[in-house]
Write a protein that binds this DNA or RNA. Structure first.
Lengths: 239, 239
DNA sequence: GCCTAGGTCCCGTCT
DNA sequence: AGACGGGGCCTAGGC
């Protein structure tokens, strides 16, 4: 009975027709993509407004509502996939899409719909390689990449300040906290490492006999300064 | 001569036809939105692959290429608006979109195009209120919100560790570094404030006579612990 | 060009 | 549910 539904496109639908089409798409857990002239109003954690213009509006089956403009990766406005979604054809012939949750609301008011496409997006099976976790694997397979003679003892070892990427011992048997980053890092990475080292020193009552090692392709100067000031080391490693 | 171009939609175009339509859209600085079945391959800072499925693919006039799936705000894959973009109809009747820059490449291979919309998105005039800058303005207008008797002296005052949000004096004349956040914060905000305070103490050679004040709606326990340990204060303020 | 920090960050993961 | 950290983070502003 349920055969693969087809993608349907509509050129210049009247707002009242578009309202029905979008509502049907939502009811059928389908996606609706609109191109049209609209204003956008957001209110929630912050608030915002987008002046009239032609935008690309997408309502996904998970409830996400996105408004894309002409540039950039990020939507001009968006709403997470929870809460209510309503489509209304107004008396003055506009199509109003409204997503509303406990804390946020997003209203897209289209005075013209140039195109409407209803379709069935698939859930995505996505592989990514080159993440921080991949770098950690490499370092565990060849611990000398951290430092000659390094021995890993655990990953994600808990400290009062949070879990450390790699916990181990150096060639002299000193405990090491290793923080791994996949790309060049700034001051935040150095202070993150420092927090873990300090927490572990306090936890183990071994005042300063714990080393901190930051593994990353490279560090900025301010990062290097902080490492130096706090007595931690930088070990360059490029994935 | 150049009248407002219209949005055009095409249902189930042949890949060869779609290739021409997308290429024309790119040449005319227009946007193209496709719905179709495709695989996605990315290589660059990391690498990734998306298994076959129906996706929403958008090429914006600034060169951005986005692939959206069924869920979430973030694209399954994307490419920034620089470098080359090519559309190819292959011998085996697929449409291949390829965005390539010095460091990154993204390939979308569609075996079927269900819908293609070409349109002219407008540049966006966007207002946002409730940002951190807005909170700073409020605090400058009514410095008692930071702390009774607080006197602001500068915003974005430079220190060796970077510019501080608000620099001023408390009721007793002590120098204060104020870090402002618009929402509940964790350990990172506390260490950021601490870096500024330490840098300024070193810079002004006034060993510990500089206070750190974190202004935010609320803080997590770990954040509170760090503030306490480093001797800084928390001043709750909700926008 | 790099660096720094904000973001309606989003998002997964774990407590 | 809150919290914590990663992200191909993206993006804006300085220098």
């Amino acid at each position: 009975m349920t055969e693969p539904t087809e993608t349907t496109t509509h050129a210049d639908p009247a707002p009242a027709d578009a309202a029905v089409l979008v509502r049907d798409a939502v009811d059928a857990d389908r996606a609706a993509a609109l191109v049209g002239s609209c204003t956008v109003d957001y209110d929630g954690r912050a608030s915002g407004h987008v002046d009239p213009g032609v935008r690309h509006v997408v309502r996904q089956p998970d409830g996400t509502l996105l408004v894309h403009g002409a540039t950039g990766h990020r939507p001009l406005a968006w709403h997470a996939g929870d809460g209510d979604f309503t489509t209304t054809a107004t008396a003055d012939d506009r199509l109003v899409l409204r997503a509303e949750s406990n804390t946020e609301e997003l209203t897209v008011a289209l005075d013209a719909v140039h195109a409407l496409t209803v379709y069935d997006p698939d859930d995505a099976d996505k592989d990514v390689q080159g993440t921080e976790a991949d770098v950690v694997s490499r370092l565990l397979n060849d611990p000398d990449l951290v430092e000659s003679g390094f021995t890993p003892l655990a990953t994600e070892r808990d400290t009062p300040a949070g879990p450390v990427d790699i916990y181990g011992r150096d060639a002299n048997g000193r405990i090491c906290v290793v923080e791994v980053k996949r790309s060049r890092v700034g001051p935040d990475a150095a202070t993150q490492l420092d927090r873990y080292v300090r927490a572990l020193r306090e936890d183990l009552h071994t005042d300063s006999d714990i080393r901190g090692i930051l593994v990353a392709p490279s560090v900025t100067q301010k990062c290097r300064d902080i490492l130096l000031e706090r007595g931690h080391d930088f070990s360059p490693f490029e994935a």
